[in-house]
């Protein structure tokens, strides 16, 4: 018991991933097309927008715009995928399909369910990121061998947001409440130095941006991709780890209240 919570068992939790795999085996177009969205963004920037923007400054390097945006898209896609899995999809399972009521009559506990669903979001995020990174490499957008670490970085982003999304969903009472998710996600997607550098913001706004969780992920992915690696990145990673752990504790308590009262 930690903080009054039963610890999850990875051995049991993996069967939650197994269930999702069975479902996606039948709905494979969903799984297969999931990787396309960031690729379309990358393509649109490479073919069009990039010519309008020119070169962008990052950590003393002058980067082509597509080089600047590609790793940010990788991080943003990891966030978006994890949030989709743990908000809309999870709400459906929790409130509409009541998927877990049957599950909790088996040896699985609420903590196992939480770990399993977060694990699924992370696994899916990592697989998509690896595919995306492969495309980036083929387009010559992975100049440094550190770039390989973008996959674990994306998995970390997926973890932090999956746990947070799950905690948030446990408070949702209706589909309308889920609109709040978009209201938090869209600005994060647009303003986390994803599409233009931090220098576009006036002083205090730049500080705000640097405090957002996606900014940590974008900075991690971009730095690793380009190879401008320093110890300060550990802080960005630690931010995401702590965020994920805190959200998991909240999630554990909430699910226990919702499902095992």
């Amino acid at each position: 018991m930690v903080l009054g919570l039963a610890l999850p068992s990875p051995r049991r939790a993996r069967h939650v991933l197994g269930r999702n795999l069975v479902i996606y085996r039948r709905a494979w177009p969903l799984l297969a097309t999931g990787v396309l969205e960031p690729l379309f963004y990358l393509l649109s920037i490479g073919l069009g927008l990039g010519h309008l923007v020119g070169r962008v400054d990052f950590a003393g390097h002058e980067l082509a715009y597509k080089q600047f945006v590609a790793p940010a898209l990788l991080a943003a896609a990891a966030m978006n995928g994890a949030i989709l899995d743990t908000t809309y999809n999870l709400y459906y399972k929790l409130k509409i399909a009541k998927t877990y009521e049957g599950v909790l009559a088996t040896p699985l506990s609420t903590a196992d369910v939480a770990l399993g669903e977060i694990g699924w979001a992370v696994a899916r995020g990592a697989a998509y990121s690896a595919t995306f990174l492969g495309v980036m490499a083929a387009l010559g957008l992975v100049p440094s061998p550190w770039g390989l670490c973008c996959v674990p970085a994306a998995a970390l982003v997926a973890y932090a947001f999956a746990a947070t999304g799950m905690a948030a969903t446990s408070y949702m009472r209706s589909w309308q409440d889920l609109d709040i998710v978009a209201l938090a996600l869209v600005p994060m997607f647009l303003f986390s130095a994803t599409f233009y550098p931090l220098t576009a913001y006036v002083g205090w706004l730049a500080v705000v941006v640097q405090c957002t969780p996606l900014y940590q992920g974008v900075l991690l992915a971009r730095s690793l991709d380009i190879g401008t690696v320093g110890w300060s990145l550990a802080l960005n990673a630690a931010y995401l780890v702590v965020m994920g752990l805190a959200a998991m504790v909240i999630t554990g308590r909430r699910l226990e209240r919702l499902l095992a009262a």
């Binding site: 709905a27 177009p29 969903l30 097309t33 999931g34 396309l36 969205e37 379309f40 963004y41 393509l43 649109s44 073919l47 069009g48 927008l49 010519h51 309008l52």
Partner: peptide, 26 residues
């Protein structure tokens, strides 16, 4: 299932490539 597939295969590409964000002449 089909809704998400249409969203990803039709709506997102249209959004990005129909001259909203850059002239299609490019």
């Amino acid at each position: 299932v089909g809704f998400s597939v249409v969203e990803r295969l039709v709506i997102v590409p249209l959004f990005l490539f129909s001259g909203s964000f850059f002239p299609i002449a490019q």
